[in-house]
Write a protein that binds this DNA or RNA. Sequence first.
DNA 1: TTGAAAGCGCTAACAT
DNA 2: ATGTTAGCGCTTTCAA
Lengths: 337, 337
Amino acid sequence: MTVKTGPARVTRKDVARYAGVSTAVVSYVINAGPKKVAPATEAKVLDAIQVLGYRPNAAARALKLGSTEMLGLVIPDNTNPFFAELSHAIEDAANDRGYALLLTNSNGSTAKERKHVRNLLSRQVDGLLLTSVEDEPYLDDVVTTGIPAVLLNHYRPSKLLPTVGVDLTAGARAAVEHLIWHNYENIALVEGMNTANTPDEREAGWAQALAAARLREGQIFTAPFSMEGGYRAGRRLADARDRPRAVFVSSDAQAVGVLRALHEAGLQVPQDIALVSFDASFQSAFTWPALTAMHQPTGQMAEAAVSALLDRESAKARNMVFPTDLVIRRSCGCRPE
Amino acid sequence: MTVKTGPARVTRKDVARYAGVSTAVVSYVINAGPKKVAPATEAKVLDAIQVLGYRPNAAARALKLGSTEMLGLVIPDNTNPFFAELSHAIEDAANDRGYALLLTNSNGSTAKERKHVRNLLSRQVDGLLLTSVEDEPYLDDVVTTGIPAVLLNHYRPSKLLPTVGVDLTAGARAAVEHLIWHNYENIALVEGMNTANTPDEREAGWAQALAAARLREGQIFTAPFSMEGGYRAGRRLADARDRPRAVFVSSDAQAVGVLRALHEAGLQVPQDIALVSFDASFQSAFTWPALTAMHQPTGQMAEAAVSALLDRESAKARNMVFPTDLVIRRSCGCRPE
DNA sequence: TTGAAAGCGCTAACAT
DNA sequence: ATGTTAGCGCTTTCAA
């Protein structure tokens, strides 16, 4: 038994004794039910709580209730502005319902992701939000526990779990269509890498837009979903023979890196190369030039995901797909400097 | 009592029954102690766990042990690259020790911060990391619980709690000295805003460097610690009469905004205005131009903070100050394009 | 309106 | 080497 240092812990029993009531009554006032308490008694209890500095023990409550009022979240990297924004929104949605958030980063490692899932599950979270680096992650564990779970930032439907995401293909297609509208013809793609060998769904959107406009497919530069990855892709892009006139970049983080590489190469955006990216995170408004980008509604996604986990009536939801919308700024060439 | 849906929960008792042993033995094998178990018995137990898909209930364990093996973290905003980096490091340090992280954002609100602290405390976290928006936050709550706590990203010593931070004054001073070394004379300051009315310690460093070089103090532009805040400060900076030749910016996030505002105003960095910022988060390498910045060792700080909370022998630590080091890139003018 | 008490799943001291 | 069991702090049924 761990020895508790510091001031002796104040328990419900202490409060009850001090207030001259039973522990049940203390419970009733703290939880505002399930029984009513006489106002005078309630005042005594409140006073005792105050005086003693009592703080309910959440572990005991969780054990009794079978609910920790915690949600577990696994994301690849909270350092990526998009995931930062998404996890922030998740935290807000969870807090609104009185839930706390256990946050973990998988750093793009499948092994770490599974370790976190296992850990979160054994911590009895009331719900699990998984932004997997795999396409169809290893989920039997999750499903057998019966703990509600959601695949977040996931577009392809899953047999096992509800998903929350954005129509990546349609979003990418619309983004590329905007580039086509500008009359750019040689349009490249900076694609993200996922652990699965399935191609990112944005690729299909890019290809579709090109095909519909009878444009030949431009080059594809594959790189991790990070600034560094984008930077490396950007260098290859700048050096490419038959250099593309425009690029669709699969994430803001990558776009920041691409921008940097292009600047280094002495190329102007959008004059030499136009760029549209995906996410439209807060960050995209502060680059130079500001990024024209497909916006993902992180707030709505977070709300939907948390709701699917916790709200009885939305438990039926399966594959939740949110629309993206194009935020027009400078990098596409719409408002040349 | 919450009705548990899904597969009936498997408890230790089920495992014991299936393996034909007592629950104590199951405990011994799961925890590898405190008693030894015969190899054959152990195998049976392991098998039972496997077959039944048993997962220990962390809430029960926490109640019994008085330890949740969770740490609570309060930061202003995980969307700020510096805090993203710091919280990532904290998560790693906690994970290394088998602890999970409860992450909360105060969004710069004192009220929210206190709410989170209270909540974290009642969740019985084994340690609390607080990056407060106040200078000497309301800590009586924390102290009376006896839960170990640390003031993170906090330079000024606290009477009540150990602190982990960087010497802001020395760091700022060194940064400004670098600007002075470049022979810039009119050196402004973009200062962050905290809720307390005490000035940010970086201001003193800036002033000291200027005084030591017998330079008059430049203008001060105060703004929130965010890209948006920096942007607004940057606009004021660009428009200022007697425009400064250089600026020290108190954070990378602000610097990104300043850069953007300067670009918009048609000003070149470093040719028209040189810039050095604080933090040197990963992001600072990808701006245009790349930021010369004072680096805060987030990894070390995280490690020290977590260690102060959890490691017996470092419990004595009080005011932990880490050195910063200047990362030279382009924005100061060291390597003109 | 209030109280007594069972029991949530686990650990470990104490038996055997 | 293994088993029995008290009790961690809480909620809530059932009784008063």
